[in-house]
Design a protein around this nucleic acid. Structure first.
Length: 519
DNA sequence: GTAGGCACTTAGTACACCGAAC
DNA sequence: GTTCGGTGTACTAAGTGCCTAC
């Protein structure tokens, strides 16, 4: 779009505290002369300003902008001191760099298309409408400039609500739910909330024994409602199940969480594979990811489950006297801020910390330590049932890696043979050249062994990770201070664990935690 | 208690991107 | 220059949990 030429902004005089010195004395310049002087000051760090031609030309042109009074005073460039001006500009550009413009997470409005949904979704294929300016609510501070809507259109509303964090919202037509534009995870507001979340989970650590004792006691309660609550809480704690809010039938895929489990989702085995009181879970959870697990439970839990299932059809609720609201109300009484999801955060983070303590070996080299970290991370991902589809290229890339390992092994034995013969030569000849050769080969063997080890570690790591997604727990469940502390303790660079985006998101933790941080 | 509204976190997938290998 | 393979990011659906009105 042609808008005509854009002019440089007018010159803004320097603040009076920033002085130009001539012959050691401060001197106030006219605006015209000052402007040209600032050009020079801004370039002061560059080596051109030491070149005779540059200095001569600058001085000549500068004098043209001076008043006659200035011209008569300022006659020698060597006597000019621009350092204060230069410092000022440096400080300013530094300050500009420091100004944090909070990044926005999703600034593009979702485009129209056909709704897919996840799993067996009753609304798949429905048209997702185009969002227009008249659908958009903008939330900003009263004194801020908000963007104008495209010509000929209007925003739905301009709102100034500082109790919420969203910047833009609209209502989507498939479920009728509200969508938002919010800030990036690296923003102050999200970081503080994240921190708070982990602090609540640490609170739970302090009283989890008491809470566990209580729900075990409640397994014996006379009241059905309390028994159900206690068994559900046991599952949430032990198995890191989600709360399980009710969902409107026909609106979404049929998935469940703890409180919404149905009789058909569990099977009871008084005895199975040498274990007593085994419960088999098989249901679709969030995103229609299958949760399948066989767990031995306490006898009391088992008996209770039998009781809950009595005279029920498979499609009946297992916990018919319970929902998330009842459960959370109870949790709130046990600890301030406690809800079902806090157990997931707590159990994930505490597992990471315990696993790291258990499996990190101080003698290991860096790649082996990172493998230990990934294994600890993996234990959490398994607990939280974070799955992924095996990558399409998995088999192939695994084969390629194996080929690399074989080649490396071959190279290693070749180099070992060379070392042997070099040693033999040294015995016979005993000269400096042979000695050097032996040393060189020794080093080579060592280097190749290290490379081989690294490849083997990589292969193990990748194989173990085939169907497990580590990212979700890393991003949402693991107190980043545990990882930061671990890195500091074992001298592993933080960027081996967190990429740039993750470091930005967890900047608060990287700042905060030292090597003996305890979750 | 329950139904709906709202604001926020948590989730897996597709694909863009980039450096290394060819 | 092209292909390959791995990583990081964008996208947006799908949860949780709180609040209010009845």
């Amino acid at each position: 779009e042609h808008k005509g030429p854009v002019f440089a902004p007018p010159y803004e005089p320097l603040p009076s505290k920033v002085k130009f010195y001539y012959d050691g004395k401060p001197m106030k310049l006219s605006p015209e002369a000052e402007e040209v002087a600032t050009f020079f000051a801004k370039m002061l760090d560059h080596e051109y300003t030491t070149k005779d031609v540059f200095r001569k030309n600058f001085f000549k042109d500068w004098r043209k902008e001076m008043t006659s009074e200035e011209k008569s005073k300022i006659t020698d460039l060597k006597k000019c001191d621009f350092t204060e001006m230069s410092e000022y500009f440096k400080a300013q550009s530094e300050a500009r760099k420091q100004v944090k413009h909070e990044r926005i997470a999703n600034f593009r409005i979702e485009p129209p298309g056909l709704f897919r949904g996840r799993g067996d979704h009753p609304k798949m294929g429905m048209l997702k409408r185009r969002i227009r300016p008249k659908d958009i609510i903008i939330n900003c501070s009263k004194d801020s400039k908000y963007p104008e809507p495209p010509p000929g259109t209007k925003w739905k509303e301009i709102r100034h609500d500082n109790k919420v964090t969203w910047l833009v919202s609209w209502t989507e037509n498939i479920q009728g739910s509200i969508k938002y534009i919010m800030l990036n995870p690296s923003s102050r507001i999200k970081g503080e909330k994240d921190w708070q979340k982990y602090e609540t989970a640490r609170q739970l650590k302090k009283c989890v024994d008491r809470i566990r004792a209580q729900y075990r006691e409640d397994w014996k309660s006379k009241e059905m409602k309390i028994r159900q609550r206690a068994v559900a809480l046991y599952f949430i704690d032990k198995l890191a199940l989600r709360a399980g809010n009710e969902k409107e039938e026909g609106e979404t895929a049929d998935t469940v969480g703890c409180c919404s489990l149905r009789v058909e989702h569990i099977k009871l085995y008084p005895e199975s594979e040498g274990q007593e009181f085994v419960v088999e879970f098989d249901f679709l959870g969030k995103d229609s990811i299958r949760y399948y697990n066989r767990v031995p439970v306490e006898k009391r839990v088992f008996k209770n489950l039998q009781l809950f299932m009595e005279n029920k059809e498979p499609e009946d609720d297992l916990f018919d006297r319970l929902n998330t609201s009842i459960l959370n109300k109870h949790l709130q009484e046990l600890m301030d801020g406690l809800t079902a999801k806090v157990f997931r955060t707590y159990n994930a983070s505490i597992t990471l910390q315990q696993q790291l303590k258990e499996i990190t070996n101080g003698e290991d080299n860096i790649p082996a330590k990172i493998l230990s970290y990934n294994r600890a991370n993996r234990a959490v991902a398994i607990l939280c049932n974070h799955q992924r589809a095996p990558p399409k290229t998995f088999e192939k890339s695994m084969q390629n890696l194996q080929a690399k390992i074989d080649a490396k092994k071959e190279q290693l034995s070749e180099t070992k043979r060379e070392l042997k013969s070099a040693k033999a030569d040294l015995k016979v000849r005993r000269d400096e050249k042979c000695k050097k050769l032996v040393e060189g080969k020794k080093k080579a063997v060592q280097r190749i062994e290290e490379q081989l080890m690294k490849l083997e570690v990589q292969a193990t790591d990748r194989e173990e990770n085939k169907q497990i997604a580590l990212g979700t727990s890393k991003l949402n469940y693991l107190d980043p201070r545990i990882s930061v502390a671990w890195c500091k303790k074992w001298g592993v660079s933080i960027d081996k664990i967190y990429n740039k985006t993750q470091r930005d998101k967890f900047a608060w933790a990287i700042d905060m935690a030292d090597e003996d941080y305890e979750f």
